[in-house]
Simulated assay, not measured.
Amino acid sequence: MKSLQRKHVTRQIHVGSVPIGGGAPVVVQSMTNTDTRDGRATVAQIRRLEDAGCEMVRVAVLDEVAVEQLPRIKKEIGIPLVADIHFDHRLALGALAAGVDGLRLNPGNIGGADKVAKVAEAAKERQVPIRIGVNSGSLEKDLLARYGHPTPEAMVESALRHIRLLEDHDFDLIKVSLKSSDVLNTIASYRLLAEKVNYPLHLGVTEAGTLVDGAVKSALGIGILLFEGIGDTLRVSITRDPEEEIPVAYSILRALKLRDRGVELISCPTCGRTEIELIPLVEKAERMLRKVKTPLKVAIMGCVVNGPGEAREADVGIAGGRGQGILFKKGERVEKIPESELITRLLNEVEKITGEKIQD
Protein backbone atom coordinates (compact mmCIF):
# COMPACT_ATOMS: atom_id res chain seq x y z
CA MET A 1 0.00 0.00 0.00
CA LYS A 2 1.23 3.46 -0.81
CA SER A 3 1.74 5.96 1.99
CA LEU A 4 -0.91 8.60 2.62
CA GLN A 5 -0.72 11.89 0.81
CA ARG A 6 -0.63 14.97 3.04
CA LYS A 7 -3.80 16.74 1.89
CA HIS A 8 -3.71 19.67 4.31
CA VAL A 9 -0.25 21.11 3.71
CA THR A 10 0.52 23.83 6.22
CA ARG A 11 3.19 26.51 6.30
CA GLN A 12 6.47 25.28 7.74
CA ILE A 13 8.08 26.37 10.97
CA HIS A 14 11.11 25.02 12.81
CA VAL A 15 11.24 24.07 16.48
CA GLY A 16 14.96 23.97 17.01
CA SER A 17 16.27 21.96 14.08
CA VAL A 18 13.02 20.02 13.59
CA PRO A 19 10.82 21.11 10.66
CA ILE A 20 7.10 21.20 11.40
CA GLY A 21 4.48 21.37 8.66
CA GLY A 22 5.01 22.11 5.01
CA GLY A 23 5.01 18.42 4.13
CA ALA A 24 7.62 17.44 6.74
CA PRO A 25 7.15 14.06 8.50
CA VAL A 26 4.67 14.06 11.38
CA VAL A 27 6.64 14.65 14.58
CA VAL A 28 6.15 12.68 17.80
CA GLN A 29 6.34 14.69 21.00
CA SER A 30 5.62 14.29 24.69
CA MET A 31 5.68 16.17 27.99
CA THR A 32 7.62 15.39 31.13
CA ASN A 33 5.81 14.72 34.41
CA THR A 34 8.80 15.56 36.58
CA ASP A 35 9.08 18.80 38.53
CA THR A 36 11.07 20.98 36.14
CA ARG A 37 12.69 22.60 39.16
CA ASP A 38 14.45 19.27 39.60
CA GLY A 39 16.73 19.56 36.62
CA ARG A 40 18.45 16.22 37.14
CA ALA A 41 15.21 14.23 37.22
CA THR A 42 13.85 16.13 34.24
CA VAL A 43 16.95 15.51 32.13
CA ALA A 44 16.90 11.81 33.06
CA GLN A 45 13.29 11.46 31.95
CA ILE A 46 13.87 13.35 28.71
CA ARG A 47 16.77 11.04 27.88
CA ARG A 48 14.48 8.06 28.38
CA LEU A 49 11.96 9.72 26.10
CA GLU A 50 14.67 10.26 23.49
CA ASP A 51 15.62 6.59 23.68
CA ALA A 52 11.96 5.71 23.10
CA GLY A 53 11.82 7.89 19.97
CA CYS A 54 10.43 11.20 21.25
CA GLU A 55 11.42 14.02 18.88
CA MET A 56 10.35 17.08 20.86
CA VAL A 57 9.60 17.55 24.55
CA ARG A 58 7.57 20.02 26.61
CA VAL A 59 8.24 20.90 30.23
CA ALA A 60 6.02 22.77 32.68
CA VAL A 61 7.50 26.10 33.78
CA LEU A 62 5.78 26.95 37.03
CA ASP A 63 8.01 29.68 38.41
CA GLU A 64 11.39 31.39 38.21
CA VAL A 65 13.12 28.42 39.84
CA ALA A 66 11.97 26.28 36.92
CA VAL A 67 13.19 28.94 34.47
CA GLU A 68 16.63 28.78 36.07
CA GLN A 69 16.85 25.06 35.27
CA LEU A 70 16.06 25.46 31.57
CA PRO A 71 19.61 26.22 30.34
CA ARG A 72 20.95 23.10 32.06
CA ILE A 73 18.13 20.94 30.72
CA LYS A 74 18.58 22.34 27.21
CA LYS A 75 22.32 21.68 27.29
CA GLU A 76 21.97 18.05 28.37
CA ILE A 77 19.32 16.81 25.93
CA GLY A 78 19.36 16.23 22.19
CA ILE A 79 15.80 17.14 21.17
CA PRO A 80 14.01 20.52 21.01
CA LEU A 81 12.79 21.88 24.35
CA VAL A 82 9.39 23.59 24.65
CA ALA A 83 8.41 25.61 27.71
CA ASP A 84 4.79 25.34 28.86
CA ILE A 85 3.68 28.70 30.29
CA HIS A 86 0.44 29.81 31.89
CA PHE A 87 -0.65 33.29 32.95
CA ASP A 88 2.77 34.93 33.63
CA HIS A 89 4.45 36.57 30.63
CA ARG A 90 7.64 37.01 32.66
CA LEU A 91 8.12 33.24 32.69
CA ALA A 92 7.80 33.23 28.90
CA LEU A 93 10.42 35.95 28.58
CA GLY A 94 12.69 34.09 30.99
CA ALA A 95 12.28 30.84 29.07
CA LEU A 96 13.14 32.58 25.81
CA ALA A 97 16.25 34.11 27.37
CA ALA A 98 17.16 30.62 28.65
CA GLY A 99 17.26 29.34 25.08
CA VAL A 100 14.15 27.18 24.71
CA ASP A 101 13.18 26.12 21.20
CA GLY A 102 9.47 26.73 21.57
CA LEU A 103 6.74 28.11 23.82
CA ARG A 104 3.33 26.70 24.58
CA LEU A 105 1.07 29.49 25.81
CA ASN A 106 -2.20 31.19 25.11
CA PRO A 107 -1.60 34.91 24.53
CA GLY A 108 -5.07 35.74 25.79
CA ASN A 109 -4.23 34.76 29.36
CA ILE A 110 -0.76 36.21 29.98
CA GLY A 111 -1.79 39.67 31.08
CA GLY A 112 -2.93 42.06 28.34
CA ALA A 113 -1.84 43.45 24.98
CA ASP A 114 1.40 44.99 26.24
CA LYS A 115 2.51 41.66 27.70
CA VAL A 116 1.64 39.84 24.47
CA ALA A 117 3.66 42.40 22.53
CA LYS A 118 6.75 41.80 24.68
CA VAL A 119 6.56 38.02 24.31
CA ALA A 120 5.84 38.16 20.57
CA GLU A 121 8.76 40.55 20.02
CA ALA A 122 11.19 38.39 22.02
CA ALA A 123 10.04 35.18 20.33
CA LYS A 124 10.24 36.73 16.86
CA GLU A 125 13.73 38.05 17.53
CA ARG A 126 14.86 34.51 18.41
CA GLN A 127 12.69 32.81 15.75
CA VAL A 128 11.04 30.71 18.44
CA PRO A 129 7.56 29.37 17.57
CA ILE A 130 4.57 29.59 19.90
CA ARG A 131 1.99 26.83 20.15
CA ILE A 132 -1.48 28.04 21.01
CA GLY A 133 -3.17 25.29 23.00
CA VAL A 134 -6.94 25.44 23.24
CA ASN A 135 -8.38 22.98 25.74
CA SER A 136 -12.06 22.16 26.12
CA GLY A 137 -11.73 22.40 29.89
CA SER A 138 -10.49 25.98 29.94
CA LEU A 139 -12.46 27.91 27.33
CA GLU A 140 -13.25 31.58 27.86
CA LYS A 141 -16.40 32.21 29.91
CA ASP A 142 -18.11 34.26 27.22
CA LEU A 143 -17.68 31.46 24.68
CA LEU A 144 -19.11 28.92 27.10
CA ALA A 145 -22.04 31.24 27.75
CA ARG A 146 -22.70 31.69 24.03
CA TYR A 147 -22.29 28.06 22.91
CA GLY A 148 -23.44 26.33 26.10
CA HIS A 149 -20.51 23.92 26.25
CA PRO A 150 -17.12 23.42 24.54
CA THR A 151 -18.42 22.81 21.02
CA PRO A 152 -16.02 22.59 18.07
CA GLU A 153 -17.21 26.05 17.00
CA ALA A 154 -16.39 27.47 20.43
CA MET A 155 -12.93 25.90 20.46
CA VAL A 156 -12.11 27.17 16.99
CA GLU A 157 -13.31 30.67 17.84
CA SER A 158 -11.06 30.61 20.91
CA ALA A 159 -8.10 29.52 18.79
CA LEU A 160 -8.72 32.27 16.24
CA ARG A 161 -8.82 34.87 19.03
CA HIS A 162 -5.41 33.79 20.30
CA ILE A 163 -4.01 33.65 16.78
CA ARG A 164 -5.15 37.21 16.08
CA LEU A 165 -3.43 38.47 19.23
CA LEU A 166 -0.11 37.23 17.86
CA GLU A 167 -0.80 38.27 14.28
CA ASP A 168 -1.55 41.79 15.53
CA HIS A 169 2.12 41.95 16.50
CA ASP A 170 3.29 40.58 13.15
CA PHE A 171 4.06 37.17 14.64
CA ASP A 172 3.27 34.11 12.56
CA LEU A 173 5.56 31.35 13.88
CA ILE A 174 2.45 29.66 15.20
CA LYS A 175 1.28 26.11 15.79
CA VAL A 176 -2.20 25.32 17.15
CA SER A 177 -3.83 22.50 19.09
CA LEU A 178 -7.50 21.94 19.93
CA LYS A 179 -7.70 19.24 22.58
CA SER A 180 -10.76 17.63 24.07
CA SER A 181 -11.33 14.35 25.91
CA ASP A 182 -14.22 13.78 23.50
CA VAL A 183 -12.92 12.08 20.36
CA LEU A 184 -15.69 13.29 18.04
CA ASN A 185 -15.44 16.89 19.24
CA THR A 186 -11.68 16.76 18.78
CA ILE A 187 -12.03 15.55 15.20
CA ALA A 188 -14.70 18.12 14.35
CA SER A 189 -12.66 20.95 15.88
CA TYR A 190 -9.53 20.20 13.86
CA ARG A 191 -11.51 19.76 10.66
CA LEU A 192 -13.11 23.16 11.15
CA LEU A 193 -9.85 24.92 12.01
CA ALA A 194 -8.05 23.31 9.06
CA GLU A 195 -10.55 25.06 6.78
CA LYS A 196 -9.70 28.45 8.26
CA VAL A 197 -5.91 28.58 8.80
CA ASN A 198 -2.76 27.09 7.33
CA TYR A 199 -0.72 27.07 10.51
CA PRO A 200 0.75 23.70 11.56
CA LEU A 201 -1.57 21.68 13.79
CA HIS A 202 -0.60 19.63 16.84
CA LEU A 203 -2.91 16.65 17.38
CA GLY A 204 -4.00 15.05 20.62
CA VAL A 205 -6.95 13.76 22.60
CA THR A 206 -6.45 15.20 26.05
CA GLU A 207 -7.15 13.42 29.34
CA ALA A 208 -7.65 10.25 27.31
CA GLY A 209 -7.25 7.98 30.34
CA THR A 210 -5.37 4.80 31.13
CA LEU A 211 -3.21 2.81 28.73
CA VAL A 212 -6.02 0.95 26.96
CA ASP A 213 -8.58 3.78 26.83
CA GLY A 214 -5.91 6.36 26.05
CA ALA A 215 -4.45 4.29 23.23
CA VAL A 216 -7.88 3.61 21.73
CA LYS A 217 -9.07 7.22 21.92
CA SER A 218 -5.78 8.51 20.55
CA ALA A 219 -5.71 5.98 17.72
CA LEU A 220 -9.22 6.99 16.70
CA GLY A 221 -8.97 10.75 17.14
CA ILE A 222 -5.42 11.23 15.91
CA GLY A 223 -5.61 8.43 13.36
CA ILE A 224 -8.77 9.67 11.63
CA LEU A 225 -7.35 13.18 11.32
CA LEU A 226 -4.03 11.95 9.99
CA PHE A 227 -5.86 9.75 7.50
CA GLU A 228 -7.62 12.89 6.28
CA GLY A 229 -4.27 14.64 5.91
CA ILE A 230 -4.67 16.88 8.97
CA GLY A 231 -1.92 17.19 11.57
CA ASP A 232 1.81 17.96 11.73
CA THR A 233 2.80 16.88 15.26
CA LEU A 234 1.12 14.62 17.80
CA ARG A 235 1.11 13.55 21.40
CA VAL A 236 -0.60 10.47 22.78
CA SER A 237 -1.87 11.36 26.27
CA ILE A 238 -2.18 8.46 28.69
CA THR A 239 -2.07 8.25 32.47
CA ARG A 240 1.32 6.52 32.57
CA ASP A 241 4.97 7.45 32.47
CA PRO A 242 5.38 9.57 29.33
CA GLU A 243 7.78 7.02 27.81
CA GLU A 244 4.72 4.76 27.43
CA GLU A 245 3.18 7.27 25.02
CA ILE A 246 5.83 6.93 22.36
CA PRO A 247 5.24 3.34 21.18
CA VAL A 248 1.52 4.09 20.82
CA ALA A 249 2.31 7.18 18.75
CA TYR A 250 4.57 5.27 16.39
CA SER A 251 2.07 2.45 16.11
CA ILE A 252 -0.52 4.96 14.88
CA LEU A 253 1.91 6.44 12.36
CA ARG A 254 3.14 3.03 11.24
CA ALA A 255 -0.40 1.73 10.71
CA LEU A 256 -1.09 4.71 8.44
CA LYS A 257 2.29 4.30 6.71
CA LEU A 258 3.29 7.83 7.69
CA ARG A 259 6.40 6.88 9.67
CA ASP A 260 8.42 3.69 9.78
CA ARG A 261 10.39 3.34 13.01
CA GLY A 262 10.98 0.40 15.31
CA VAL A 263 9.44 -3.04 15.53
CA GLU A 264 5.94 -3.94 14.42
CA LEU A 265 5.15 -6.94 16.59
CA ILE A 266 2.80 -9.49 15.05
CA SER A 267 1.34 -12.05 17.45
CA CYS A 268 -1.69 -14.33 17.42
CA PRO A 269 -4.54 -13.80 19.90
CA THR A 270 -4.15 -17.37 21.27
CA CYS A 271 -6.70 -20.14 20.90
CA GLY A 272 -7.29 -23.72 21.96
CA ARG A 273 -4.41 -24.88 19.75
CA THR A 274 -1.85 -22.77 21.61
CA GLU A 275 0.56 -25.07 23.41
CA ILE A 276 3.14 -22.62 24.82
CA GLU A 277 2.92 -19.78 27.34
CA LEU A 278 2.48 -17.25 24.57
CA ILE A 279 1.23 -14.22 26.48
CA PRO A 280 4.26 -13.78 28.83
CA LEU A 281 6.53 -14.57 25.88
CA VAL A 282 5.01 -11.77 23.80
CA GLU A 283 5.02 -9.32 26.72
CA LYS A 284 8.72 -9.92 27.35
CA ALA A 285 9.55 -9.56 23.67
CA GLU A 286 7.56 -6.33 23.45
CA ARG A 287 9.53 -4.81 26.34
CA MET A 288 12.87 -5.80 24.83
CA LEU A 289 12.03 -4.84 21.26
CA ARG A 290 11.03 -1.31 22.22
CA LYS A 291 14.74 -0.50 22.19
CA VAL A 292 15.00 -1.21 18.45
CA LYS A 293 14.98 1.80 16.13
CA THR A 294 15.31 -0.06 12.81
CA PRO A 295 11.99 -0.72 11.03
CA LEU A 296 11.29 -4.45 11.35
CA LYS A 297 8.35 -6.85 11.42
CA VAL A 298 8.70 -9.50 14.14
CA ALA A 299 6.19 -12.31 14.67
CA ILE A 300 5.56 -14.49 17.72
CA MET A 301 3.03 -17.21 17.01
CA GLY A 302 1.54 -19.92 19.18
CA CYS A 303 1.05 -22.57 16.51
CA VAL A 304 3.87 -24.36 14.73
CA VAL A 305 1.51 -25.60 12.02
CA ASN A 306 -0.05 -22.32 10.90
CA GLY A 307 2.15 -19.68 12.54
CA PRO A 308 4.80 -19.18 9.84
CA GLY A 309 2.20 -18.99 7.10
CA GLU A 310 0.00 -16.55 9.00
CA ALA A 311 3.01 -14.31 9.64
CA ARG A 312 4.48 -14.68 6.16
CA GLU A 313 5.25 -10.98 5.81
CA ALA A 314 7.30 -10.84 9.03
CA ASP A 315 11.03 -10.34 8.62
CA VAL A 316 11.70 -12.83 11.40
CA GLY A 317 9.62 -14.74 13.91
CA ILE A 318 9.14 -17.73 16.16
CA ALA A 319 6.30 -20.21 16.51
CA GLY A 320 6.10 -22.65 19.38
CA GLY A 321 4.28 -25.71 20.65
CA ARG A 322 4.80 -28.84 22.78
CA GLY A 323 8.07 -27.78 24.34
CA GLN A 324 9.74 -26.61 21.17
CA GLY A 325 9.38 -24.14 18.35
CA ILE A 326 10.80 -22.94 15.10
CA LEU A 327 12.60 -19.85 13.92
CA PHE A 328 11.32 -18.58 10.60
CA LYS A 329 12.11 -15.76 8.18
CA LYS A 330 9.61 -14.43 5.63
CA GLY A 331 7.39 -17.44 6.36
CA GLU A 332 10.13 -19.99 5.71
CA ARG A 333 11.32 -22.34 8.45
CA VAL A 334 14.98 -21.90 9.43
CA GLU A 335 15.55 -24.21 12.41
CA LYS A 336 13.93 -26.01 15.33
CA ILE A 337 14.61 -24.63 18.84
CA PRO A 338 13.74 -25.76 22.41
CA GLU A 339 10.90 -23.64 23.87
CA SER A 340 13.17 -22.38 26.66
CA GLU A 341 15.49 -20.79 24.07
CA LEU A 342 12.90 -19.30 21.74
CA ILE A 343 12.91 -15.71 23.00
CA THR A 344 16.70 -15.52 23.31
CA ARG A 345 17.15 -16.91 19.81
CA LEU A 346 14.63 -14.46 18.40
CA LEU A 347 16.31 -11.48 20.03
CA ASN A 348 19.71 -12.68 18.80
CA GLU A 349 18.35 -12.78 15.28
CA VAL A 350 16.91 -9.28 15.59
CA GLU A 351 20.30 -8.03 16.78
CA LYS A 352 21.95 -9.61 13.74
CA ILE A 353 19.46 -8.04 11.33
CA THR A 354 19.47 -4.54 12.83
CA GLY A 355 22.97 -4.28 14.27
CA GLU A 356 21.38 -2.93 17.45
CA LYS A 357 22.17 -4.48 20.82
CA ILE A 358 19.00 -5.18 22.81
CA GLN A 359 20.15 -7.81 25.31
CA ASP A 360 22.52 -7.27 28.22
Rank of each mutant, 00 (worst) to 15 (best):
A44S: 12
V9R: 10
I353S: 10
P25D: 08
L70N: 05
E153L: 05
L327S: 10
R312M: 02
V334C: 06
L173N: 02
V304Q: 06
E157W: 01
A188K: 07
G204Y: 02
R164F: 03
R164I: 09
L193G: 05
L211Q: 13
L184N: 15
S181D: 14
D241K: 03
K297D: 10
A120D: 01
A122K: 00
I187F: 12
E64L: 05
H169G: 01
N306E: 11
P19T: 11
P200W: 05
S218C: 01
F87N: 04
S180E: 04
K115A: 14
V197P: 13
S340W: 12
R312I: 02
A41F: 01
E264H: 02
N109D: 09
L211H: 09
L49V: 11
K336W: 15
L173R: 06
K7R: 14
E245W: 04
P107T: 10
R287N: 13
S177P: 14
Q45K: 14
E195Q: 15
D142E: 14
V298I: 03
V82D: 05
G112T: 06
K217P: 07
Y147Q: 13
V82R: 04
V176K: 05
R345V: 07
V43L: 06
K357A: 04
D168E: 14
A97Q: 13
L258A: 13
Y147V: 13
L91S: 02
M288R: 12
A194C: 04
R131F: 13
A154T: 12
S177F: 07
I343L: 15
R240F: 06
D38K: 04
V28W: 01
L139D: 00
V100Y: 06
K175T: 11
G331H: 00
P308V: 04
C271Q: 06
S189Y: 07
G22W: 06
L166K: 03
K352W: 14
L347P: 02
I343T: 15
K291T: 07
L234Y: 05
T210R: 09
G221H: 05
R131L: 14
A299T: 05
S267M: 09
V27S: 11
E332H: 12
G325F: 03
V316L: 09
R161M: 08
Q359H: 08
A98Q: 01
R146Q: 15
E264W: 00
L62Q: 06
V67Y: 03
T34D: 01
K175Y: 12
L165T: 01
V116D: 02
E339S: 08
I343V: 15
I238W: 01
D182I: 08
V176A: 11
F171N: 00
A122R: 03
L105N: 04
L160K: 09
A113Y: 05
T42S: 08
D260V: 11
Y147S: 08
A215K: 11
D360Y: 12
R345A: 07
K2N: 15
V28K: 00
A122Y: 00
V197D: 14
K297T: 08
A52W: 07
D172P: 03
R287H: 13
E349S: 06
G214E: 08
I358W: 11
L91A: 02
A92P: 00
